[in-house]
Design a protein around this nucleic acid. Structure first.
Lengths: 253, 253
DNA sequence: CGTATTATTGACTCCATTCAAAGATAGTGG
DNA sequence: CCACTATCTTTGAATGGAGTCAATAATACG
């Protein structure tokens, strides 16, 4: 269990907080996408914190009051749910440049918990201020609708892939990571799974042994090279083909 | 394949369109929730259509331009996706009082298709008009954030339950329908699955035979009575227990 | 009334899990 | 630095839950 972060708000007097959306490396990926300089400046004013958190720390817990969206500048975060039996389920993994917390608008409380996986740097965007600012900046309102809508589509996509056989789920998982890292300026072919085999299995609804076997299998096929958590993709096309090539096609070959 | 509805916009001259949010039977369930009379009146003005559609008709298709949210006054709609192999996947079932189309904000196009399952009556809420109105009515903006957020949490909940064994998935499906019908003023214990066994299986990631067997099983246990698509729940507690009672507890008995 | 669709039920098969055991890696403290 | 431990990973073998195949029954529909 990671230690609870008492408040994202506390900061030492004089601590330098460089929060400046204009110069942020996330650039077009974060909230300001599609806003002009003046609008970005206004968003910038309501973003009042930036913090570093470490593995196991909670950004928020299920049941916590929803106060802010969180923009990941660096690091990775897993979203988890506890089911009726107290078992943890990993709902998703967030990468640098992604925004967490949209689920909080529903009831004003977070429904799931967010746990730091790899050391994280986050900008905090107060929900009240953001909603108020949306009243004045139409582009910002639209941008938020887009971001939430996009997240909704993503989760629906997972609903579809999670019904497929183990091999496809695993391939989809890797491709998804590759795509998401890529469009955030990282390498599409070399990245860290920041989850253990156990956690990947949990996320995909597979046994950890199955995950291990599939990674080995993909390696034997020459699609990837795995060393611990580091994945190097050698043949992305090969991986993608798993999602579309039909079993009946294989038999014909 | 159901016939394509050319445009939801066309209507005969003189056709009587009773669209009046104030007196709508959906009441607090639809968009106007949490708005005062004056605000409802403004929403009312931008809702310009109400249509009836029949089984197999498309409310929208994947790839269609996103122009409106659709509020279901009556009937049921399934949301479907086509995967890489051309197979249909049922992502969700919408009930009266629910709102479709939130996925369209992401790209301005619908990513999934919406197919009428049981004859439907829909109000169409133009996205442009709605966004503009949100700029003037803070409550409405907040309401939309809530609705989208709620949908996001719902889909995440499905991600969790769809990893569980067949029996639990089936029980969750029935309980979910019961809850949703209930909070919309319908009976919590008697309703129509508006999907075939095949479709339920598709939705839950099960074979149609498994669905059939599980429904029979629940009936043998006295939890439900099934006649074709009509379900009467005799012991909701029993169904709920399936989700929380551990296998190890069973063995102890 | 006949045909097509949908549903039920049984038997067999197989994919992925579970069980098991050994190996690798990271972290800790003497 | 190395031993010691905890955690994570790999791989093999056996088991089982759900899928597939198959045949019949029930229902809907034109």
């Amino acid at each position: 269990m990671g230690k609870r972060v008492e408040s994202l708000g506390c900061r030492k007097f004089g601590e330098k907080l460089r929060v400046d959306c204009k110069n942020c490396s996330l650039g077009e990926l974060c909230i300001p996408r599609g806003l002009d300089i003046g609008e970005i400046e206004r968003v910038n004013k309501i973003i009042h914190k930036k913090r570093t958190l470490h593995r196991g720390d909670y950004l928020y817990r299920a049941g916590d009051k929803f106060e802010s969206l969180l923009a990941l500048k660096a690091g990775t975060v897993k979203i988890v749910s506890l089911d009726n039996r107290g078992n943890e389920h990993i709902i998703g993994l967030f990468l640098p440049g992604e925004i967490l917390g949209f689920g909080g608008f529903a009831t004003g409380m977070h429904e799931y918990s967010a746990v730091v996986q790899e050391t994280v740097s986050v900008c905090e965007i107060p929900a009240n201020g953001l909603e108020a600012l949306c009243q004045e900046v139409p582009n910002l309102q639209h941008q938020l609708f887009q971001l939430m809508s996009c997240k909704l589509n993503q989760e629906r996509g997972k609903l579809v892939t999670n019904k497929k056989p183990a091999e496809e789920r695993m391939a989809s998982f890797l491709i998804d990571l590759s795509d998401r890292y890529h469009c955030r300026g990282f390498s599409a072919v070399e990245f860290n799974l920041s989850l253990t085999r156990q956690e990947i299995g949990n996320h995909l609804g597979l046994a950890l042994e199955t995950v291990s076997r599939l990674l080995s299998h993909f390696q034997e096929m020459g699609y990837i090279e795995v060393d611990r958590k580091l994945v190097v993709i050698k043949n992305l096309g090969g991986l993608r083909a798993i999602l579309s090539v039909d079993e009946s096609d294989k038999k014909r070959a």
